[in-house]
């Protein structure tokens, strides 16, 4: 079954829901990386590495960035968290009918289609961003702001071709699959596989299997660029560290360019918990590096096939609609000149 035709709606929804309201407190410094792991000994593979394998669910309603109205509030109390969850679920519920016919059309995909999750993360932090301590992604560098504005301007026009739509709608990259992974509208599932010398990160979104060699080999040559970059891994104690470079200029993780450098850290924090942390560095895009952290929860799965491109009726419809818009605009212009 393809949820593909949801993608464009999903992107819009994710953007508009990101600054959902919460209730707040004080900033924390850098993530306490292996605090949980210190009290729990992870199982090991037969060849002696920490065993991270399983299917992990990273759905959460904790927003990436701390909402403005929670400025200064680092962590929610249990009560505040529960209230926040309730409020978010009501706001997101597309089955409510309190907005008139236009809103109803916008909510055409009802709750059945979405899988945002229903809980804040276990730490009850008000943002997934842990650094800077204010929980906000640092400001875009001037060049990146220009890039981002140019993209936004194109997105407002009827698409001249598929390249004018985003990579998720084109089924080139999964909105939440990364690197780095970020909780999104659905398919927030990832399966980790380990064999001697390799870890493979299989994201359900767009079926991306990211193969991470652990043998210390260098990154691909700098002139070889890939949509998802080129990943290399190593162990630091019980933590898998994955370093990714060689992105394309179009990969566009939150406006990043080809110099994007992603460092991910995976640490088992319990039988059913995998701590996932990432640090983003791209001086051409952000004024300073930034980091986020959230736990993933073991889930029975399975990971389903996500035939995004194969079922991409959405792109036909988007482009057909754009051509109809062109025609209407043309006719309106003719009338205007008469």
């Amino acid at each position: 079954m393809s949820h593909r035709f949801l993608a464009s709606l999903g992107v819009l929804a994710a953007v508009s829901l990101a600054p959902a309201p919460v209730a707040g407190q004080t900033p924390a410094a850098k993530s306490k990386k292996t605090a949980a792991a210190k009290t729990w000994t992870p199982p090991r593979t037969p060849w002696g590495q920490p065993d991270l394998q399983g299917i992990w669910d990273f759905a959460t309603i904790t927003p990436m960035e701390r909402p403005k109205e929670l400025e200064g509030k680092d962590v929610l109390t249990a009560e505040e968290a529960s209230e926040f969850e309730q409020r978010t679920l009501v706001q997101r519920n597309p089955d409510r009918r309190d907005g008139g016919s236009q809103a109803d059309v916008g909510r055409a995909y009802n709750q059945f289609w979405w899988d945002y999750g229903s809980k804040v993360i276990g730490t009850k932090r008000t943002s997934l961003v842990v650094d800077p301590p204010d929980g906000r992604i640092p400001p875009l560098a001037p060049e990146a702001r220009q890039r981002s504005e140019a993209r936004a301007a194109v997105a407002r026009l009827p698409a001249a071709g598929p390249e004018d739509r985003n990579l998720w709608e084109r089924c080139i990259l999964g909105g939440n699959a990364g690197p780095p992974m970020t909780p999104g509208a659905y398919n927030n599932n990832v399966q980790l596989f380990q064999a001697p010398g390799y870890v493979v990160i299989l994201n359900e979104m767009i079926n991306d299997a990211r193969i991470v060699p652990l043998d210390g080999r260098p990154h691909l040559a700098p002139d070889i660029r890939q949509w998802r970059g080129d990943s290399r891994g190593r162990w630091e104690d019980n933590t898998l560290v994955v370093d990714t470079t060689n992105f394309t200029n179009q990969t566009n993780f939150r406006g990043a360019g080809r110099n994007l450098h992603v460092v991910e850290r995976f640490t088992r924090a319990g039988a059913d918990t995998l701590l996932y942390e990432f640090t983003i560095d791209d001086p051409m895009t952000w004024t300073r590096p930034w980091s986020a952290a959230f736990p993933m929860t073991k889930t029975p799965g399975p990971i389903y096939e996500y035939a995004c491109h194969e079922g991409n009726y959405g792109m036909f419809n988007i482009l057909t609609g754009a051509r109809a818009d062109d025609k209407a605009a043309e006719e309106a212009a003719k009338k205007g000149t008469r």
Partner: peptide, 22 residues
């Protein structure tokens, strides 16, 4: 990316002009 022209080319604003946009 390599088949978008093949599959969607006829729906471009300027069909036959190949990949465009940003």
């Amino acid at each position: 990316e390599f088949v978008e022209e093949l599959i969607y080319g006829h729906l471009r604003k300027q069909p036959g002009k190949g990949p465009g946009g940003l």
